[in-house]
């Protein structure tokens, strides 16, 4: 039981609790905060794997920018508590078993693939992380077309939002 294992367990529990709270919380701001908690725990897991850059970007972009906008909008609209409805019985009786089945299936396939050689539990060293330089070289040579296409996609989304906002007035 080393420190890395302890941190791993703590962060995993935090991520799962956060994810559950995200769904179960009735106050929109609490849900948003729970999502931030999930992102931060995931970032710490990345740190544990030696991927400090990815961890930092995860927090900086998702928790630090996108979620702040979410919270901003929730606060601006002054959204109240969620209203629970009992309209869909199908979701209750079929959705839950299906969800559990899906979870078990994922756990099984992951265990079959990696069960024998879990890096942390086995005490073996984590793989050497790719440096930021390697990452950017890959991003701007091999994957430059998808990268640029993604940015154009985001630009289109921004323009679309602008057009929709203009139409209102």
């Amino acid at each position: 039981m080393n420190i890395a294992m302890l941190v791993f367990i703590a962060c995993s529990v935090m991520a799962i609790v956060g994810a559950l709270a995200l769904i179960l919380a009735r106050e929109p701001v609490h849900s948003a905060l729970a999502l931030v908690l999930v992102m931060i725990s995931l970032a710490i897991l990345y740190l544990l794997l030696g991927a400090a850059f990815i961890a930092a970007i995860q927090i900086l972009v998702y928790a630090g920018a996108i979620m702040v906008l979410f919270v901003f909008v929730i606060m601006l609209l002054n959204a109240g508590e969620e209203v629970r409805t009992n309209v869909s019985r199908l979701a209750k009786w079929v959705g839950l078993p299906l969800g559990i089945f899906f979870l078990l299936e994922m756990a099984y396939s992951l265990f079959r693939e990696y069960g024998g050689r879990a890096a942390l539990a086995g005490g073996t060293a984590a793989p050497v992380p790719a440096s930021t330089r390697d990452l950017s070289m890959k991003l701007f040579t091999e994957f430059v077309l998808p990268f640029e296409l993604t940015s154009i996609l985001i630009l289109i989304a921004v323009l679309g939002a602008l057009v929709l906002a203009k139409r209102e007035s």
Partner: peptide, 13 residues
């Protein structure tokens, strides 16, 4: 070795 980005990440929270 990514101290600056980490610092920005923490302060953005």
């Amino acid at each position: 070795n990514v101290a600056l980005i980490l610092l920005f990440a923490i302060s953005s929270i």
